[in-house]
Amino acid sequence: MWRSCLRLLNGGRRLLNRPRGGLSASVGPRSNPQPPARAYVPPTERKRFYQNVSITQGEGGFEITLDHRKLKTPQAKLFTVPNEALAIAVATEWDSQQDTIKFYTMHLTTLCNTSLDNPTQRNKDQLIQAAVKFLDTDTICYRVEEPETLVELQKNEWDPIIAWAEERYGVEIGCSTSIMGPSIPTRTREVFISHLASYNMWALQGIEFVVTQLKSMVLTLGLIDLRLTVEQAVLLSRLEEEYQIQKWGNIEWAHEYELQELRARTAAGTLFVHLCSESTMVKHKLLQE
């Protein structure tokens, strides 16, 4: 799962073609001189100002160092992540930047900034409620009544995922052709709330991010539970759009760019959830493919 997400995260935009500095991960205290998330809008690009990216282990976790400067969050907090695997993934984003730093491609860094700064000041319960709320408008629960070919396509592609989720969590979800959507039972919400409560705050930030990309709680759970790949989840979330494209055609470059971006964001969020849930250290071969 990690390697697949890393490929999707970096492959679409060819971020790893020309790395500048050598990525080193020196674990241990180091005394270096001390010289973007929802409520924060970073600059879209900035000239690259560093050569080397390294990782050090501090008292609060793993830190990212750009040459001799420790990375900070938009609110000027020390950028510290809870485990080495996540630090390696974030460092790779920074090491992959070329002449300019394209902040809009650095989804893992942004998710870490959001987790550290918590710009909207939400607690765990609020994060869970924000994710579960998507059940009311879940993409794969809304069905069309015509044309017949699209009706069949939705049934064939979406029904197995809903059936999986209902069996996996012991709940009822269903679907509807009404503009009001399906009526989600109270018990179903309670089960999903209880399930999400098993994740930490960092992982919940990632889950909400993925849910927002896919517009589907069910697809997100299928992705995180390894029932779906990133490619499958993205395709299922865009089923009607892909149907229309096949029927009427599309602007090729625009469609491809949008698809790659959605895959990259979804892959980043999924990787973030798994890395934030990881309790053991992952060796540096995580980056090798």
Rank of each mutant, 00 (worst) to 15 (best):
Q126G: 01
A268W: 13
E252W: 14
T266L: 03
Y243R: 00
Y40R: 15
K124C: 08
C5M: 06
Q288E: 13
L196A: 05
I245K: 10
W94V: 13
N32F: 12
D125R: 10
L214E: 08
N10F: 13
N200F: 03
I162G: 06
E289D: 07
M217F: 15
D136L: 15
I251R: 09
A89P: 00
S237C: 03
T188P: 02
V211A: 07
L9K: 14
F79M: 05
T65P: 00
T114C: 00
F192G: 02
E231H: 13
V211P: 15
F103N: 03
G60L: 08
E240A: 05
V90L: 09
Q213N: 07
V273Q: 02
F209R: 11
E167P: 01
M106G: 01
N113D: 15
L108P: 02
S178D: 02
V90P: 03
L86S: 04
K102H: 11
T270R: 13
E45R: 12
E172P: 00
R30L: 06
L8P: 00
A87H: 00
Q51R: 10
A89H: 02
L223W: 13
V234R: 02
E166I: 07
A76I: 07
A197K: 08
K77S: 14
W253Y: 04
I140Q: 06
A25N: 09
L78K: 11
